[in-house]
Design a protein around this nucleic acid. Sequence first.
RNA 1: GGCGACGUAGCCAAGUGGUAAGGCAGAGGUCUGCAAAACCUUCAUCGUGGGUUCGAUUCCCACCGUCGCCUCCA
Length: 472
Amino acid sequence: MTLRLHDTLTRSLVEVEPLEAGHLRLYTCGPTVWNRVHIGNFRTFIFEDVLRRWLDHHFEKVTHVMNLTDVDDRILRNAKEHGVSLEEETAQWIAAFFEDRDTLGLRPAHHYPRATEYIGPMVELIERLQDAGAAYDSDGSVYFRISAFPGYGRLSGFSASSLVAGASGRVDADSYDKEDARDFALWKAVGPDDIGWDTKLGRGHPGWHIECSAMSMTLLGESLDIHCGGVDNIFPHHENEIAQSEAATRQPFVRVWCHSEHLRILGEKMAKSLNNFMTVPEVMAGGARPSAVRYMLAASTHYRKPLNYSDEPLAAATEAVDRLAAFRDRVNELRAADGGGADEDVLTAIRHARNGFDEAMDDDLNLPEAMGAVFASLRDINRALDANAVSAEAQRALRALLDEVDDVLGVFPLVDRERGGDLSEEERGLLGARQEARNAKDWAQADSIREQLARRGIAVEDTAEGQRWRRA
RNA sequence: GGCGACGUAGCCAAGUGGUAAGGCAGAGGUCUGCAAAACCUUCAUCGUGGGUUCGAUUCCCACCGUCGCCUCCA
């Protein structure tokens, strides 16, 4: 089975083949830590997490690097305003990012390089560009010379003439003294009172794009396999990364570019600038479960299509997760019999689920379709289990299927965390009393206790094996 | 203005040149002391208008609508 991903540069599906056999090198654009990231950012991070997990499944070794951009104009401004160092300013937001990452169950990257720790490599890279004639000084700052890189615009599809300076209304068009409006800053000169670094280039701080080139080359080499981010990074960020990297190394910078679509809210992109965003803690405070948020962001639609955030998809995701979790409970509680009358049907359904899942995932990470295959098989399996017992072997196969699916989906650890630990002494007592009431066929009493437990957030179900509880 | 994406049931959504996965919600039923869970049944001709084709939701054109990018936004 080969994995195919949509490559932004060629706008086609390409087979993923690591440059170094058996070792895939992945770079994902991380957060700019100037405040708490929102769930729109996390849509991209979760897409990248699903990719990372599927790559782990495919290749012997994966090295995943996610950068933390801890120097940029907003951070510098805030640090100055608060009268603190850059490190003090960003520490809280880095901590918040890791907290949210863990809330949503993202597999940690192998490296989280910070821009401020790579000033040296950035300066070296800029010097290489100067030597190559691809960079020039202006008022102490250093700019990349677009005209020195003929391939400029390939990734975004923008031709030189089509770029309308300031058309987005986001940035002042002519605030810098550049040869060409499209040229971008590699190094920005600052005065002695401003936060900056004294380097061979003079006192200043790096431009936005150079950090990713320097950090990825340092940690992953001058050519890496996959580089991803949100679609809004295509231009200018990734376009500029390609230009500055390849102008320096004369080698292809990245083999496959992947970009995820935006999360929307009320039909519009969720963004800090539109003030229509929600953070992970805010969503949780609204009663959402981490497992449901993760499911919604990862699996409710394909990563290259916009996803609209609202209560309905979240509720649907909650139910979908519950269905999976209930099925896992059922599998774990199966009392396997030697005969295993349902084995054949169950094993067939498992095979269908696995094949459908793998195929859909290999086809550009189509997790929605992959889950469709899983759910279709769940129904077949449930039907078989309703009718007959299964062998211990079939039970093991069912567990393996769930493990495989959740190796990518990643919701079960979150579900376990949400359910909390064991029952308290008192709650156990209530459950025992209810069992006694049921034995005595005192239904009124049994129902009343079930009500009490429900008010504590504990759902009780009666099964052939007795009572089963879970935190709802 | 340039470039690009999308438009499938009440909602979310996958997909294919030969009459549409899956999830949620709804309706009816089986099971259950009652529930819950599970299962069964039921619920769409794929934005509009043309064209190509034996046949299009799937290819082409136009239109309408929504959205994104156009120098520091994931």
